[in-house]
Structure formats: structure tokens, C-alpha cells
Design a protein around this nucleic acid. Structure first.
Lengths: 338, 338
DNA sequence: CTGTTAGCGCGTTCAG
DNA sequence: CTGAACGCGCTAACAG
């Protein structure tokens, strides 16, 4: 069946195309009865305006792009949830692009998005990314962009993040107060803003509690899961004095958890682990893991709101609109770390 | 900065618009040197064709729609991962729509998608959905649609699923062989194909092992998590002979797990639980839970492949292309259920 | 090998 | 209050 368009409606009703168009958009120039006739037929024939024709004409795609490293990660899934909800409220559509942490993919995507396919972008940077020229290009084309979680500090635009520094501090403090004196830190790629800030919190906490910060205890976890696990095993074997681990992200917590298991290190008796994690099945997690949970859904929602606000007003996204939401420390009842 | 278009390129090069267009598309009619000149300038000016103008003209959006109940669920996230990958390989874009299990949202989305915004659809049905008229409408407009996981049997189109009947059978068999004699089943909404099939597997297994199937042990888990948990608590209190639970989905396993905890029922000593689950952090799960894991990533990938195959050839999606992939039973080492 | 012309379907002038 | 005409940016048929 051919898709019905304005022309067909017009013919059927013995009206001109433009009258039909106006009637459907409730233009004041059109008479009430005409509007009703038009709308009735449109309804009957299941008329849906061609979005691309409309986009072309109005230079508005009613679509945003969401660029994230991965989706099989509860943080990003929940964020998408928030984003999609706000998008729907604003009658917008959501295109999803996954970088898989790859710089070249991020580059290709960014390059593609200057085409006008989207009116705005929500983005969380890939861990490989070190150069931001592609993002500046988007900015120079006046495509509004709001960063969330993994932000690009070089760009003057809104960012929605968790209070990463404080969270890193809290996490480390939690271990220290539970008696840990030699705490390893698993850093997600050092390129990332979140990694840096969480680590700074870790360093600061150690400092405040008078514990010397040993750089060799900070492991860069930007390899594959298996490789990270091996690195952890090596570290744990060579440094038996380690009694705490602070993992920057969920995946790294898993790797270290597995490393401990394989070395028959008891958690949380020998080593206590704390990690950022957004598994909604937190109650099923091993009680030995304390987690820092980010308000992922809200982060997505707020980032989207800021973006739509600027799209609405046709104004650039102000950096001043940036937001920092608080994470939550979730302790398990049955853990010795308390 | 204004976005550069064909016209500007043409002016700059003293060529006609159509020549430039052809040159960029490597049309055989255009001379080699001209092509190079054109491409060079296009590169310099960062020219990206306006996708909507192109869509309008070619009646191809190079976009597919993915309609799913939720994304904060590892099964669907992994599926999206597979879908996005195949889409990228085929140079397609992915629009995401979440129904949140709501029929009315599914309806609105389906209705919207007849507009030509997408060339094809990948879909997993909402649990509330009982009427399929909106899907037939899409089919009647010749929009290719491939169902995955939660399918609509009434429509003659390709479906990609897990072997749900066998999985339900396996799960139940697993509990029976572990000694369970009174096994409750937590059914995800009875509207859903997956719920039905898994339950049929459960019933068949009981039958084969000579255990009478008691309908009052089958609980419809289509309420909120809290409500489901309460229902489970009631059931467990009134039927102390229950020694096994087979949950149709992850969320229901959680609810029953929590119900047991609150009633101080020991897992897996008093009650053994088995559930469908796609948490990639399976190793962190409670050892008392055995899980049936679906090949979510592959399901997404295969569903997408089938769709793109038909888009390529401009042919309808054949029901004969349907696929049934196998799930995997994952037992925990440390569990008594073995 | 290159250019001219004519739409795709819609929204927006501007005339009547 | 309604309609005719134009153009968004691109592709395709047809001339030259």
C-alpha cells in the first residue's frame, strides 16, 4: 500500500495541498469545519506526515543523537532510559551510536553528525579519545552538545556528571575506616575525566588520613577483562600487603574480584573491595562488594532536559547549565566492611 | 557556520550541481580528474550530504527502528549491541523506542513509524500488548519487520527467538533432578510468547517426571516488583511445601529471591531457584541462583541481519528465515543445586 | 563526459 | 478564509 500524503488528502477533499497542511497544523487561517473535515479524513487514512520532507523544509530533524561507549553497562542503559523519556515528552526521536570505546568510531560518528541528521547530541566520550578536534568541529557547526558522565572539559558546553571527586574520596575513606592501609586503585583509562577525578579523590583521602600514596598501586585498567585480571593477579601476588581495592568501574571490580578468587584471597576478610557500579540487581551482588551507585537515570534525564531547553529556545547550550549529581554509597548488610 | 551543500561546492568548482553529486557518488559518467577535484574540495569543506534531502528523493531513510520494552535489562542491551553493530556494517542508523511494557506507547510508536521514518523495524513486544492491529498495519504498509525474543505469532514475518520451550523444560528438569518436588513458576505476563513457551516447557517436564502440575503454583508476575514480591511471600507462607522456583525472567527471580530472604527461607537449602538471566556479571551473582542465559547479542545480530538482507533485496521478510537460538544453562560451582 | 530539468513531500510566503 | 507558487537539498532522467 502506498503511503498517503498531503496531495491525496487534498484531492479527496477537493482542497488545495496548502489548505490541508494548514488545517492539520491548526493554523488560524483555516475555518473550523474545514479543519474538522481534514482531520477526520487524515485520521481515517492513517495519514502521517513524511518526517524527512518536513525536516528538509523546516531545517529541524526532531531527532537527537546519543553517542556512548557501550550499552551493555547498566549506567548507560539507565541513562538512555532517562534520555528516551525526556525525548518522547518533547516529541523527539533518539538515534543511538555506540563507539565501543574506540576513538576512530567516535571520530566517524561525530563527522557524520555534522550532516544535519540530528538537532543536538548527548555524548559520553570513548576511553581511547585524547584529541577533541572532532568535537570542536561539531561545536563550530553550532550543533548543541551536552556531555554526560565522561565529559570533555575543553569545550564550553553543559556537562552533567556525578560528583566524582567526592565519590572517590568517600570510597577510599570507606575502606580506610574499615581498616585498610594499603589500597590499590583500578583506574579506568587515564584519558577520562571520570577516571582522573575519582583518582584525585582517592589520593586526597589517603593524604588526609596520613597514608602515603604509592603510585605503583594505581593500575591502568584500559585493557581487556582477561588482561586486567592478570595484571591484578600479578599485583596481588607481588604486594601481599594490599588489603583494599577501589575499582573505578564495575568491570574492573569484576576483574579484581575474579583475580582474588583465583588466588584464593578471601573477600572481604583479606581484601575489601569497593567499586562504582550501577547494577540494578544490587541485592544479588556478592555481599563483599560495597558499591558507589551513580544516579544514571537522572543524569540521562537532566542532560536531555538541558539539551532540549536549548533546542527550544534555539540558543547554544550554556556551560553554566552544567550539573553535578550525587552518587550513593551502598553498603551490604552482611559485609564486614561497614 | 552554515552547513555546506552541493550548490556551494558546485559554485566553487564552476560545475553544475548534478555533476558534483555524481562525482561524489563515483558515477561512471564523470571524468577521473573532475572526481578528484570535487572530492578534494568536499573533504576540505567537510561536506556531508543532507541525509533528509537524500531520503526524500530516494525514498530510503537508511534508518531502522528498534522497539523494545526496556533497555535497563541486560538481554535488551546486549541485543542492541548486536543490532547496532550490524547496522553500522550496513551503513544504517538506529532509532530507539522504549515501550516500557505499555500497549498504548507501543501503539503510538507503531503508528508513527508508518511515516517512512524507518526502512524496517526490529521489535520485541510489550507485555501489555494483546491486540496486534497496529503491527498488521505496519505489515500492510510493507514495512519489513523482524521480531526478536517476544514475537507476534500472528504475523507472517521472520522471528528470532531462544528455544524457550526446551529452556523451560531444562530449567524445570534441573530443579527436579536436584530433588525439588513442588516447584512454583513465576510467569512473565501470560500475553507473551516467551512466557507461554517457557511455561509449556515447565508443564511438560513435570509431566514427564510424573509430578502433578498444580495451577495454583503458577504466578502471573506482571505487577510491580514490590507487588510481585508480596505475592510470592504470600504463596511461600501458604505453601511451605514449595522447594523450588522457576522464574521466567531475571526481575521475577529477584523478587522471589527477596521474598525468600524476608521470610528467612534459606537458598538453596530450603528452596532452589532457577531463572532466565542475562547479567554479564554472572560471576558476581549469588551462587544459589542457577541461570538460563540467552544468546542476546547473537539474537540482536541475527535479527538485524535478516532485516538488512530483505532491505537489500527489497523483498519482504520471509517467515522461513526465522531462527531459534539455544540458551545456555549456567550452574554455579558452589551451589548445592548441581 | 557535463548540464538542464524536474520532482520527492512539505511548509511558507503572498495573492486573492 | 483558501489556493498558487516556490524552494529546502538532493537524485535521476534526459539532453547535449
Amino acid at each position: 500500500m502506498k503511503s498517503v500524503n498531503l496531495k491525496e488528502l487534498a484531492q479527496e477533499l477537493n482542497l488545495s495541498i496548502s489548505t490541508v497542511s494548514k488545517a492539520l497544523r491548526d493554523n488560524y487561517e483555516i475555518g473550523q469545519e474545514t479543519k474538522e473535515r481534514v482531520k477526520k479524513l487524515a485520521q481515517e487514512l492513517n495519514y502521517e506526515p513524511n518526517p524527512y520532507a518536513s525536516s528538509l523544509r523546516r531545517k529541524k530533524s526532531k531527532t537527537i543523537g546519543v553517542v556512548i561507549p557501550e550499552v551493555s553497562n547498566n549506567f548507560f542503559s539507565q541513562a538512555i532510559n532517562g534520555i528516551e523519556e525526556v525525548a518522547r515528552e518533547n516529541d523527539y526521536h533518539v538515534l543511538i551510536y555506540l563507539t565501543n570505546e574506540s576513538y576512530s568510531r567516535e571520530l566517524a560518528i561525530a563527522h557524520h553528525l555534522v550532516s544535519g541528521r540530528v538537532d543536538g547530541i548527548l555524548m559520553s566520550i570513548a576511553s581511547e579519545t585524547q584529541d577533541y578536534a572532532h568535537l570542536r568541529e561539531l561545536a563550530s557547526k553550532n550543533i548543541p552538545i551536552v556531555f554526560f558522565d565522561r565529559v570533555c572539559d575543553e569545550l564550553a558546553t553543559a556537562k552533567v556528571t556525578t560528583n566524582d571527586f567526592q565519590s572517590g574520596y568517600m570510597a577510599t575513606q570507606h575502606l580506610i575506616e574499615a581498616g585498610c592501609r594499603c589500597i590499590a586503585h583500578l583506574l579506568i583509562s587515564s584519558n577520562l575525566s571520570i577516571g582522573q577525578k575519582r583518582m584525585q579523590g582517592y589520593v586526597k583521602a589517603l593524604e588526609n588520613y596520613g597514608i602515603t600514596c604509592d603510585a605503583s598501586l594505581i593500575i591502568n585498567g584500559d585493557r581487556t577483562d582477561a588482561e586486567n585480571r592478570e595484571t591484578m593477579k600479578q599485583l596481588l601476588r607481588s604486594r601481599p600487603e594490599i588489603d583494599g581495592i577501589f575499582a573505578s568501574v564495575e568491570r574492573l571490580a569484576m576483574s579484581s574480584y575474579e583475580a582474588c578468587k583465583e588466588l584464593n584471597i578471601s573477600i572481604p576478610d583479606d581484601i575489601k573491595i569497593i567499586s562504582f557500579s550501577n547494577l540494578y540487581v544490587a541485592s544479588l551482588l556478592d555481599p563483599a562488594l560495597t558499591t558507589i551507585t551513580q544516579p544514571a537515570y537522572s543524569i540521562g534525564k537532566e542532560a536531555a532536559k538541558i539539551l532540549f531547553n536549548s533546542l527550544d529556545k534555539n540558543k547554544p547550550v550554556l556551560e553554566a547549565n552544567s550539573l553535578e549529581l550525587s552518587s550513593e554509597l551502598i553498603k551490604r548488610k552482611s559485609t564486614a566492611v561497614n
